[in-house]
């Protein structure tokens, strides 16, 4: 293998886990949103808003947790905004999502310029420190890859079974699935379709806000214009790739993280594989996954909620 030894592999995979974390947050939220029958293409914009508000709060109050909280709150507000338009005004969800993205793209950088207008050096915060799990982090390979990260990474992975449980085992989850599959039936059950959808989108917004805030607070330590670089859209791809299953979404996020980490690493090491090719792989894999789901006889819809992106109107 030459230059690629075990240490490099471990570095790459550990980085992959870190890169995957915001994707996990966002795709978990998007799964909840889409399960309820609403498509939120605007998570990219929500992430950016989460990033700026998280960074600004963390910087001003010198409190990382407060920053995360701010990110989540702004995510909730923007989620509610999207929900209001899509659910109550029944606007086109694709266009509304793209509007949200453009708005978030502008607003985040606008706020950054205003809030940090006099600064000559890019303002920085110290990110969450790494916590090594006792004992577990000593396991060869597994330890350094999975158990040597900051608290937010653990939180992200911990959220996965929680969200799975929420969707599949709780009554709220059953209602989410019901309004996403067959809103009219849910209505006859006496379920308030619009209310459930609204909450689902808001929860999705909260997750997207958290995912956005993670990037400056949990990873980079500063804010850069358009710093999410399309990760919101990647998260949406992961949702499809995972067939709306939180457990598979982790795999999708890790796959993307690995490719991304390999690309960067190989570039640094000067290995003669175009790193762009590696970075392109997850996108191509997503398309391949979409095609495969549609080819398979059983899931013509690829496991998509029956009424995804279809507004519901009471007669």
């Amino acid at each position: 293998m030459g230059v690629i030894d075990a240490a490099v592999v471990i570095t790459i995979l550990a980085a992959a886990v870190r890169i995957a974390t915001p994707l996990i947050f966002v795709s978990l939220g998007e799964i909840i949103t889409e399960k309820s029958g609403v498509l939120n293409l605007g998570v990219e914009g929500i992430m950016l808003m989460g990033a700026i508000s998280g960074f600004y709060t963390a910087y001003t109050f010198d409190d990382l947790w407060l920053g995360m909280l701010a990110g989540v709150l702004v995510g909730i507000i923007f989620g509610a905004f999207h929900a209001y338009f899509c659910i109550f005004l029944r606007t086109d969800q694709t266009i509304t999502g793209i509007s949200l993205w453009i708005l978030g793209l502008g607003l985040s950088s606008f706020i950054y310029r205003i809030a940090f207008s006099g600064y000559f050096v890019r303002p920085r915060i110290s990110t969450f420190p790494r916590i090594s799990f006792p004992i577990l982090h000593e396991i060869p390979w597994i330890g350094p890859i999975f158990f040597n990260h900051n608290i937010l990474v653990y939180l992200g992975f911990f959220a996965v079974p929680i969200v799975w449980w929420l969707i599949n085992k709780t009554e709220f989850g059953l209602k989410i699935q019901a309004v996403g599959e067959h809103p009219k039936a849910a209505d006859t059950f006496g379920i308030n379709v619009q209310k459930i959808r609204f909450f689902s989108v808001v929860i999705g917004g909260a997750f997207a806000g958290a995912g956005g805030a993670f990037i400056p607070i949990g990873s980079l330590g500063s804010f850069v214009d358009n710093m999410t670089q399309g990760r919101g859209f990647i998260a949406i791809a992961i949702v499809i790739f995972s067939r709306w299953n939180p457990l598979f979404a982790v795999l999708g996020a890790l796959l993307f993280g690995t490719m991304s980490a390999m690309g960067t690493r190989f570039q640094v090491m000067g290995i003669d594989i175009a790193h762009q090719a590696l970075l392109a792989l997850p996108y191509i894999a997503t398309i391949a996954a979409l095609v495969m789901f549609n080819l398979s006889k059983k899931g013509k819809r690829g496991g998509a909620p029956g009424s995804l992106a279809v507004p519901y109107e009471k007669e």
Binding site: Q177, A178, E181, H182, K184, A185, T188, G306
Partner: peptide, 8 residues
């Protein structure tokens, strides 16, 4: 038209 959630 039955009011049942098909995936349940």
């Amino acid at each position: 038209h039955f009011m049942l959630i098909p995936t349940f």
